[in-house]
Design a protein around this nucleic acid. Structure first.
Lengths: 145, 145
DNA sequence: CTTATATAGGTGCATATACGCTCATGTCAA
DNA sequence: TTGACATGAGCGTATATGCACCTATATAAG
């Protein structure tokens, strides 16, 4: 391997996104900590709040997350009674995840922290640039690879 | 919580980056699989290739990764003999991570897969936009939060 | 020199991530 | 109806992630 190859790796799109993900996750997690939620858990509750009950497969797709990952990420939420698992009515294979009252309440409580994290980031990074960044990231996820 | 709050969460910068990270990680990992390396491991070896031996703290900073995370991520690489841990010469607290010959060789072998992943992504997403995306992500990591 | 403080690193714990395999259920065609 | 195939979900395994707390070493203050 030529020495210049090492320089080429600095252009790695995957590494760039992962580094930013680690950085932002730590930042948002700080503001969510008082609510007892992690960013992943917050996003699960938020999606359920927006969409209503969803099957594991449907929610995983919505979160761009592996099905089996969501299956495990939901366990702490269920244990704490923030979501409940109800068997699908028509298809007996599916399990619908549904936000409980406690879940709605916890999401409400965590929203304050999320709002702070979101505004502080956009203040530092710029609203316009944040919007551009999100647009690019949406296109990444939408790109056919 | 008002119903429109759920819509607001769709603007979450953290979730956007994390989703893209999951998506891209899976994509790059497919191309690295035959080399027996994950993207995280590839990035560790690549950084060591570019910088030479680094302490855990220094390498972690370089990777925007928690020190303790790197301390664990390096274990599989050490076990396989791709890196070795040598005690710091001047400061007896530090441990320098150094690429072994086997590590250089493995990195070389994995480069083919990385090149494929990188070019296929940039072909689909666009070189210019990839470059813009990386620039924005670099600024995220550099932003003072 | 001694003590206070800062820094390098490790450990326990909990969650996050996804692949491969398996099982149960649904669907469609012969 | 039944057999082939598709789909929803769970489990085992391995790695990834970072916080709180700990020890060892270094450095500066007195």
């Amino acid at each position: 391997m030529a020495p210049e190859a090492a320089a080429k790796f600095q252009q790695c799109n995957c590494l760039a996104v992962r580094q930013a993900a680690r950085y932002l996750t730590q930042f948002y997690d700080q503001f969510l900590a008082s609510s007892g939620l992690r960013t992943t858990q917050f996003s699960i509750l938020a999606k359920l709040r927006g969409f209503g009950p969803l099957s594991i497969n449907a929610l995983a797709k919505e979160l761009v997350m592996d099905r089996t990952t969501l299956g495990r990420n939901m366990l702490p939420l269920e244990r704490e009674g923030l979501i409940e698992i109800v068997p699908g009515s028509s298809d007996r294979r599916t399990k619908d995840l549904r936000l409980t009252e406690a879940g709605v309440e916890r999401l409400r409580a965590a929203s304050a922290g999320w709002n702070q994290a979101q505004s502080r980031f956009e203040e530092a990074f710029g609203r316009k640039r944040s919007s551009e960044l999100r647009a690019l990231l949406r296109e990444v996820v939408a790109s056919e690879l």
